[in-house]
Computed example of a mutant assay.
Amino acid sequence: MNGQTILVTGAAGFIGSHSAEALIDLGYKVVGVDNFCDFYDRSWKEMNLKSVGPGIDVEEIDITDGAAIDRLVGKAKPVAILHLAAMAGVRPSIEQPAYYARVNVEGTTHLLQAAVKHKVKKFLFASSSSVYGNMSKVPFQEEDAGYEPVSPYAATKRAGELLCYTFWHLYKMPTFCLRFFTVYGPRQRPDLAIHKFTRLITRGEPVPFFGDGTTSRDYTFVEDTVSGIMKALEHCDRYRVYNLGGSDPVTLKDLVEELQRAIGKTAILDKRPSQPGDVERTFADLTRASSEIGYKPSVSLAEGLKRFVEWFKQYGHLYKLPGEQSAEKPTVA
């Protein structure tokens, strides 16, 4: 295993940088791909990479550039590809559906083509719990039928899974699709709820609170998600879909209450109507992931939020979103 190369797309991102760290700790050489898009400040992605430390070589490439992806895979000769790069976010995908389709579907196709051409042995695709849509049956099981994604983002992730199956059918390249369930923790994207809420509560600013607080999410600490990714890499030997969640859904109301405890400050709620594209709940059935690859999340929400808030107190105040006042740049996290 030592010295083998893994190609990680989206390596400068939240899950990507944590995954790269874990792979390096396991003795792999990591070649990263990231286009450093302006979805959020580039300096944060650069900080993520500094946190990874030595052992990662990152190429600035857009995954929609098929020729560049082909050249890189041919040059790096990875034994596996961990494909995390994507345009993320439900609400932005409603505003830019064609762009999301281009990056998430076309980009994934380029990577699958290059993987087959250059005889990559394993392919791991980052999917999402959003593919389940508003299914009434819970918890969500991988074999559930009738997915009806309710956002362009969710539809692109389901399309990616179908493409992965097609390439498995045609070329028998072992491929696992990993459905992530609301991942959070240090380095989380600043637009996501836990990071955004923490920033606003800390500053004493109103927190946008959509709906009546009864929507629920299956929050998963990043350490648990990365553990699942590593186990998937070890066991990847066919086409298979796995839920990587916490299997313990929490309502929006309860999340805010737990965050208030972790921060030690009361939130000012700005109550708003429910948002189009948001699902009512996510809830991972982990029976398959547990029995087949040994996945078992261990970090509770209370413990995970405590760790996130500790990180935020050191680094989160440096982040600047459009329209916000803080203009300091991050240094390391």
Rank of each mutant, 00 (worst) to 15 (best):
Asp62Arg: 06
Thr156Gly: 00
Val52Lys: 07
Phe197Asn: 11
Leu305His: 05
Asp57Cys: 10
Pro276Tyr: 07
Val116Gly: 03
Met47Tyr: 11
Leu26Ile: 09
Ser247Glu: 10
Pro78Val: 02
Phe181His: 09
Arg158His: 08
Gly213Met: 01
Val207His: 05
Ile268Leu: 12
Gly74Gln: 13
Pro208Cys: 01
Gly133Phe: 04
Met1Cys: 13
Tyr171Ser: 09
Cys177Gly: 06
Arg307Leu: 09
Ile293His: 00
Cys37Ala: 15
Ile201Pro: 01
Pro92Arg: 05
Leu305Phe: 01
Gly133Lys: 06
Ala80His: 13
Asn104His: 00
Phe210Tyr: 15
Leu84Ile: 13
Tyr147Asn: 14
Leu162Asp: 14
Lys253Trp: 12
Arg42Val: 05
Gly133Pro: 12
Asn134His: 05
Met87Tyr: 10
Gly10Thr: 05
Ile61Arg: 05
Ala302Asn: 11
Asp41Pro: 08
Val30Met: 06
Thr225Pro: 13
Leu178Gly: 02
Tyr315Lys: 12
Glu234Lys: 15
Leu111Tyr: 02
Ile94Trp: 05
Thr287Leu: 06
Gly211Phe: 01
Gln96Tyr: 08
Ile263Gln: 08
Tyr40His: 09
Thr225Gly: 06
Phe209Cys: 03
Ile263Thr: 06
Thr109His: 15
Gly53Gln: 01
Thr5Val: 12
Leu7Cys: 09
Leu23Gly: 07
Tyr132Cys: 06
Glu161Ser: 08
Cys37Thr: 15
Trp311Tyr: 08
His18Asp: 14
Pro152Met: 04
Gly32Pro: 10
Gly245Leu: 02
Cys164Arg: 07
Met173Cys: 05
Lys271Arg: 15
Gly89Ser: 02
Asp237Pro: 02
Lys313Trp: 07
Leu170Ala: 09
Gly3Thr: 06
Thr9Phe: 06
Ala85Leu: 06
Ser51Asn: 14
Tyr99Val: 14
Pro297Cys: 03
Lys157Pro: 02
Gly264Asn: 10
Tyr219Arg: 02
Ala193Gln: 07
Asp25Gly: 11
Thr251Gly: 01
Phe210Val: 05
Glu60Ser: 07
Lys117Tyr: 11
Asp248His: 14
Pro54Arg: 07
Trp44Lys: 10
Thr175Arg: 05
Gly107Ala: 09
Val256Phe: 04
Gly10His: 01
Val183Gln: 11
Leu252Ile: 08
Gly89Trp: 02
Val52Gly: 01
Ala154Glu: 05
Asn243Glu: 05
Asp248Thr: 07
Thr287Gln: 10
Leu163His: 12
Leu255Met: 12
Gly53Lys: 08
Val31Tyr: 04
Ala155Leu: 10
Phe167Cys: 00
Ile24Asn: 07
Thr109Asp: 14
Leu318Glu: 12
Pro330Asn: 02
Leu321Asp: 10
Glu106Val: 14
Val79Asp: 07
Leu7Arg: 02
Phe181Lys: 10
Asp38Tyr: 13
Thr220Pro: 08
Ile229Pro: 04
Leu111Phe: 05
Arg71Tyr: 11
Ser300Asp: 04
Ile6Cys: 01
Pro276Trp: 00
His195Arg: 11
Gln96Trp: 03
Glu223Phe: 14
Ile15Tyr: 03
Glu223Ser: 14
Ser19Ala: 14
Asp41Arg: 15
Thr5Met: 00
